[in-house]
Write a protein that binds this DNA or RNA. Structure first.
Lengths: 336, 336
DNA sequence: CTGAAAGCGCTTACAG
DNA sequence: CTGAAAGCGCTTACAG
């Protein structure tokens, strides 16, 4: 039997209300009372009962984060840990507990909805769920502040924070153009992967603006092998490519490999740029230029946004899109 | 304002107690009453309040799972998703909600301990925490059923489920020996990584039993590059190696690559076997033989064990170690 | 700054 | 099978 607030109060010689104020951080407590309560709590090994707290206080001081199955783009190139780090830091700074959920089946999703709707969390962050999922809508209907990470299905009136994949694709391509490259290929991600299409569109826009043809496009699974295979196909169809923009670092690494095996020098003959600026990018030979998405910032902003929505109810949904940065390394710029 | 049980009971024309019985799955309710309650709940959009439930019922119907930071061996070769899948399936089958925590700092750990001790979860599963961490001990002291995934620091009296890394290392090595290989090298993981030492010991034991010398051992970071570099060092010190056992599939892939670049044929000249039987193993050229750990089973057994510990309090700690299987592919066995 | 008291929304013997 | 009632452990106006 864990100790209760009553026992602590009695041991400290104060009322339950005063003891409660100590643990809830209420400043209207004398130094003397505070010390008595704290030492009593220490001796009894007291930890406030979370259920009672939530019930009486009508808040749980925790925020739920629903993560998708592996296989999503978030798991490629180590994006997930960075995103969770950003979210976790911001929540921690506000004294909130981050609680993760990884539903694996429809049954899991149903149970989870009950759990989230049951007052266990004050707000919910949703990371790139399957498009057809109705969880965001149903949570909103229940009045639970909800923020999406990444872009939700069009037409959904949900708050979200996203990184700008379109601008990222454009930035990568413009970098290659500025370096004087003209026959630029793109290795895109699978069409169904969120963000892949936007990166491709960004590539096309930059090429179009520079009056270059954007004909050399191949899709690949986002991993190294996908990049290697796509590069092979590109070389078969157009040998004279002088630059490649790949939609993931892993694919860029695979592409670079395929080029080098055939004796092409990187970046001398073909410049290569990846996406996400993952740890992998610094480890390739030569090191890989890449587009860095502010993923930690995205996490932080998601947390801030949902906290603001919790603080003032009934706000309309809000959106935020964060811009990319370029990490230039030796796969695009020759050093001599 | 969400609907309460009282409102549902009134709408259904029954007492609060009867309504409560419907939602707690108590069979002592007439069909008629049940139907009335269920339809009233549906209309009101009722979801039981979790905090009230936990407080009154003294259990939360959820189990906490504490996951380590990325970088642990569990994140290499995709082990973490498999482990969580096993745990999640077993908990779901028992109607329990899996709740994940990823503490990132000491402050996070302290807050988490309060949270877990505060009755938010009925039991805790701990996945390969940093060795010096005192969380398991402190949770046990508070009477919270706790099970470790992987082997805890020696001397800790904690229940755990582990896969048998020693047997895995031995099995991989014996496979190579049975194929007639004699100059067998091992690419081990970093010394501080849990399990790496056991795999190395298993290698040594198998070699010793076969009266072979276990001199060719190099350590590498667990990724592809680590394997490639370690293989280079091994070849420099002993060119006539005829087999390699690597402690991860990624390292095995890197090693295979290093061999092929130098014109060695796999498996004709050098047989290669990895560890974990990850998706990567099936994707290499040639496909990689590997040791398959029953990770999903480990997850399931962890869940079962902690549920049993919760059901009957005061049990002494229990341990379970699961044996490996061999996945034989073409990197060790020639097909003609 | 402090205390008495009401109330948060449920579960569960107990009696019938 | 059903209901009245006590109780889970806290928070928070309210009054002082």
């Amino acid at each position: 039997m864990p100790a209760t607030l009553d026992q602590v109060a009695r041991a400290a010689g104060v009322s339950r209300a005063t003891a409660a104020r100590v643990f809830s951080g209420n400043p209207r407590v004398s130094e003397e009372a505070r010390r008595a309560v704290e030492s009593a709590a220490m001796q009894l090994g007291y930890v406030p009962n979370g259920a009672a707290r939530s019930l009486a206080g009508r808040r749980s001081d925790s925020v739920g984060v629903v993560v998708p199955e592996p296989g999503s783009i978030l798991f490629l190139d180590q994006l997930m840990p960075r995103l969770l780090r950003g979210i976790g830091e911001e929540l921690s700074a506000n004294g909130l507990q981050m609680v993760l959920f990884a539903p694996q089946s429809t049954a899991d999703l149903q149970r989870l909805e009950q759990y989230l709707a049951g007052g266990h969390v004050d707000a919910v962050l949703l990371l790139a769920l399957h498009e057809s999922d109705s969880l965001p809508t149903r949570l909103q209907a229940r009045g639970i502040p909800t923020v999406f990470g990444g872009r939700p299905r069009p037409g959904l009136d949900v708050s979200f924070v996203d990184v700008d994949n379109h601008a990222g694709g454009r930035t990568a391509t413009e970098h290659l153009i500025e370096l004087g490259r003209r026959r630029i290929a793109h290795i895109a991600g699978p069409a169904h992967v969120p963000g892949a299409q936007e990166r491709l569109d960004g590539f096309r826009e930059a090429m179009w603006k520079a009056a270059l043809r954007a004909d050399f496009v191949e899709h690949g699974t986002l991993d190294r092998d996908g990049g290697e295979l796509a590069m092979g196909r590109l070389l078969a169809m157009a040998g004279e490519i002088d630059a490649v923009f790949a939609a993931s670092d892993a694919m860029a690494a695979g592409a670079m490999w395929a080029l080098q095996v055939l004796g092409r020098r990187v970046p001398d003959d073909v410049a290569v740029i990846g996406f996400d600026d993952s740890p992998l990018a610094a480890a390739t030979q030569p090191p890989l230029s890449s587009v860095r998405q502010p993923i930690e910032d995205m996490g932080r902003e998601m947390a801030r946004l949902v906290l603001s929505l919790s603080a003032v109810r009934g706000q309309s949904s809000r959106q935020m899109v964060l811009g990319p940065e370029l990490s230039v390394r030796e796969s695009t710029v020759m050093v001599r």
